[in-house]
């Protein structure tokens, strides 16, 4: 690991200043992703600004919904009594991610900024436009089994590895940022980016901005399920995941919200499918159609063609469980 200077501010303003003063500075919270990357020489900050002592750990609930501090641990959020009751989709997604130990370290803000697990991003002897812009994409014609089927570009076919982000997408969360120019709120769907020709940018966060929290509006979508398909039954990144949320009146779908993980550079929201489902009666046939519709525009690479079959089946299954048609 390269040498760095370590500072530990106790106020958000001081933390942002500490970043402003040094173009090579980075925030560290849980460290589960950044320290991993620093050990491998993928990240080499000159200054590490430890933000763990900032007062950003509160979960509050009001009429509008939830406000969750950026430093809330993944485990605390998943186990929170009101989150389990009101937003079980978020709790399920969090518990599907990483391990108990990592969830006790990883924060909400850090999870939002989690880097891809593309092996070419991790291997410094390989080309990767995300790690080293202009060096090429090793995955495009390489081992691309885990990679994107939606929204990729010739420069990058990596996927966002987070489970939490997929649930937040289906729940229309808002990301709260604070920076030298003030505060701003960004809907989660606009927070992460598609790779385009700038795959080094995962999100729209500014260079000196700090995530202070997220807000999640009160949801009428009470019938939910987070389905994660992976190579082993626990502690692995998703091949495909689905966050399904339904507002039902009897067996009629009033409204649906759907997002996928493991298929794109950002949580992949399926708005077209949501509109299709609205007003329809729940049935296995309907959910199969929904899965097929979701695949419009999908494009596979040499090793991930299986996702073109796995993804629609996963959508159908997640909707069946969420609606109560089948048991989890």
């Amino acid at each position: 690991m390269k040498q760095f200077q370590y500072v530990r501010p106790t106020e958000a303003g001081l933390a942002i200043n500490a970043l402003l003063k040094d173009s090579g500075a980075k925030f560290v919270a849980g460290g589960t992703n950044l320290l991993d990357l620093m050990k491998r020489g993928i990240e080499a900050p000159e200054r590490l600004v430890d933000i763990n002592r900032l007062p950003l750990k509160e979960i509050t609930k009001n009429d509008q919904g939830f406000n969750i501090g950026a430093l809330t641990l993944n485990s605390s959020l998943a186990e929170h009594k009101d989150i389990r009751k009101d937003l079980p989709l978020l709790s399920q997604a969090l518990l599907a991610g990483a391990s108990a130990q990592l969830r006790n370290m990883a924060t909400v803000g850090g999870n939002l900024l989690q880097r891809t697990r593309c092996p070419y991003f991790y291997d410094t002897s390989m080309p990767c436009n995300k790690r080293l812009p202009g060096s090429g994409c090793g995955a495009l014609k390489g081992f691309n089994r885990m990679h994107a089927i939606f929204g990729a570009s010739e420069h990058c076919i990596a996927v966002n590895p987070s489970d939490m982000n997929v649930a937040l997408s289906a729940l229309d969360a808002i990301v709260q940022l604070s920076g030298p120019k003030g505060k701003r709120n960004i809907p989660i769907q606009d927070f992460h980016r598609l790779p385009g020709d700038r795959p080094e940018l995962d999100s729209v966060i500014g260079k000196n901005e700090l995530i202070t929290g997220i807000s999640i509006p009160t949801s009428a979508l009470k019938h939910v399920h987070y389905l994660k398909i992976r190579d082993r039954s626990s502690y692995a990144f998703a091949l495909v995941s689905v966050a399904a949320a339904l507002d039902l009146e009897g067996t009629t779908i009033r409204w649906a919200s759907l997002a996928m993980g493991g298929v794109a550079h950002k949580p992949w929201r399926l708005t077209e499918v949501e509109t299709f489902l609205a007003g329809q009666q729940i049935s296995a046939g309907l959910f199969q159609e929904a899965g097929t519709l979701a695949m419009r525009g999908a494009k596979a690479y040499e090793h991930n063609e299986f996702k073109l079959k796995l993804a629609p089946l996963s959508i159908g299954h997640a909707l069946s469980i969420a609606s109560g048609l089948v048991k989890a």
């Binding site: 460290g31 320290l35 370290m105």
Partner: peptide
Amino acid sequence: RINSCLSL
């Protein structure tokens, strides 16, 4: 419980 290898 945490992974002590990923914490400074």
